[in-house]
Computed example of a mutant assay.
Amino acid sequence: MRTILKVDSLVKKFGGLTAVSNVSLQLKEDELVALIGPNGAGKTTVFNLLTGVISQTSGTIRFREKEDLISLNNKKAYQIASLGCARTFQNIRLFKNMTVLDNVLVAMTNQYKEGFLKSIFRFPSFYRTEDEILKKARDLLAIFDLDKDMYKLASNLPYGIQRRLEIVRGLAMQPKILFLDEPAAGMNPEETADLTRLIRKIQKQFHITVLLIEHDMSLVMNLAERIYVLDQGKMLAEGTPSEIQQNKAVIKAYLGEEG
Rank of each mutant, 00 (worst) to 15 (best):
V100R: 08
T88D: 06
G84F: 06
V104A: 10
N103W: 00
Q79Y: 05
M98W: 06
D102P: 07
L94V: 01
A107S: 15
A81M: 02
L105W: 02
R93D: 06
N97I: 02
C85V: 14
V100A: 06
A86V: 09
L101K: 11
V100D: 01
F89I: 03
V104W: 01
L94M: 11
C85F: 12
K96M: 13
A81W: 03
R87M: 01
K113V: 04
Q111F: 09
R93N: 13
F89E: 04
K96F: 07
F89C: 03
I92E: 12
A107N: 14
L101D: 04
N103R: 13
V106H: 11
L94S: 01
R87Y: 00
K113N: 13
I80M: 00
C85E: 04
F89Y: 14
V104R: 07
F95P: 10
N110V: 10
N91C: 03
K113F: 08
Q79V: 07
I92G: 05
S82D: 06
I80N: 01
M108H: 11
G84M: 01
K113H: 14
D102V: 02
S82P: 03
L83D: 06
Y112Q: 08
S82K: 15
Q90D: 07
L105P: 00
N110I: 06
R93A: 14
K113I: 00
M108G: 03
N91F: 03
I92C: 13
Q90N: 07
K96S: 13
L83E: 10
G115L: 07
E114P: 00
I92W: 03
A107D: 09
M98E: 10
T99G: 06
L101A: 02
